[in-house]
Amino acid sequence: MPKVWVLGAGQLGAMLQQAAYPLALKVVPLEPEQETLPDIASEDIVTVEREQWPDTPLTQHLAKQPGFINADIFGRIADRLYQKTMLDELGINTAPWQQVTADSSAEALHNVLGEDVLLKRRTGGYDGKGQFWLYQDQGDEIPSDWLDAAIAEKKIPFKEELSLVAARDANGQKVFYPLTLNLHSNGILMASISPLERVKHLQGQAETMLSTIMDATNYIGVMAMECFRVGDELIVNELAPRVHNSGHWTQAGACVSQFEMHLRAVSDLPIKSPEVRGHSVMINVIGVERDIHWLSIPSTQCYWYGKDVRPGRKLGHININHPQRHAVQTALSKLKPYLPENYLAVFDWVQDELAKS
């Protein structure tokens, strides 16, 4: 079997492993801090489950491999300054922004970006971390350790959050999953729904944006684009050059999951349009002990990551899929009692959105 080495050994690497078997590929996740350096053959492939990593002997070793796909892209996209600059150069909608330099002041940022300004660390800071709000009416100032280490964004009065997952192969062929509607709480993804008929008219706009980005970077594999929706205009919030949490529903809801699609693309296997199967909902399991009752709910697939339980930590996800929407709604109703009270708003949101579609 050809080997695909994955930089990162978290849940995404594990799900890439699962998706590899039917393709006769062997996926080997690697912890960046591990001391033993693997023997990587010249024909092997190196990919990632994360867009940034520490400088260690292992990551230095991987960087030298000729089969490291997209090696020159991750550092650029992982840095929000370069990511935003690239989007501006490509003429792709993104929130108005400024670089936070050593000379920046809150007053100057408010003059350009408005009353409410969001600071984001240039690197890291996902799932609601690495963000700091400046509110003009509260007289907030930029913390000293954010100077020269962040960008500042204008607050966007968005209607909802959508994401698009796509794959591109070495020949430039691209395939797209349908737009996914997402619910976040404190910056953490709680639930996703796809497909939705009421956002279908935005699919072409989203595909054009992500296609432009992937072609400009000569990207190979799966990439995700998170967007704010303002009216019928999409504004890019973040890019993720990897398989993505908002694409987990594809494990149950498409003929090729995002994980299999990524492996196909980086391994030079054919990628194909992912036919969608019915209605899908993904519920993220955040900071909650596993409950085996989840396994008894019809129309569900449960993924548990085997991590220690901590508040705010992604510990698993539950995919619900069925050709009939009412069956998905029934499964949600049966699942609801087995998750904590803070999930009540999540289930209400999902049920309301399914009723609209």
Rank of each mutant, 00 (worst) to 15 (best):
L113I: 10
H61M: 08
G247T: 10
L134Q: 07
A206F: 08
V266L: 04
S357F: 01
T212S: 15
V112N: 15
Y126W: 07
K64P: 03
R264W: 09
W53L: 06
V236N: 00
P274S: 06
T250C: 11
S144I: 13
S42Y: 07
I320W: 01
I292N: 14
H61L: 10
Y219I: 11
N111C: 14
Y338L: 07
A265V: 09
Y82W: 13
S211L: 09
E341C: 06
P32A: 11
L58H: 12
K314A: 08
G124R: 00
G316H: 10
T85Q: 14
Y82G: 04
P54Q: 02
W53H: 11
A170R: 04
T123R: 14
Y135Q: 14
T85I: 02
V100M: 02
L62Y: 06
L239E: 04
K3G: 04
F158R: 02
D88T: 13
R310G: 01
T250Y: 03
T212W: 01
R80Y: 03
V222P: 07
V309H: 01
S104L: 08
G124V: 05
Q136C: 10
V230E: 14
Q99F: 05
G278I: 05
F228W: 15
A9P: 06
L23P: 03
G128L: 06
I297K: 02
Y338H: 15
Q301S: 15
D291Q: 14
F68D: 12
P143R: 03
L118M: 15
S257H: 11
S194W: 00
I92L: 15
P311E: 11
Q34Y: 10
S104I: 08
F176Q: 07
Q173K: 14
D127E: 09
P22R: 01
L119Q: 02
G67M: 07
V346L: 02
I271F: 07
L87F: 03
S333N: 09
G231E: 12
G8E: 01
E275A: 14
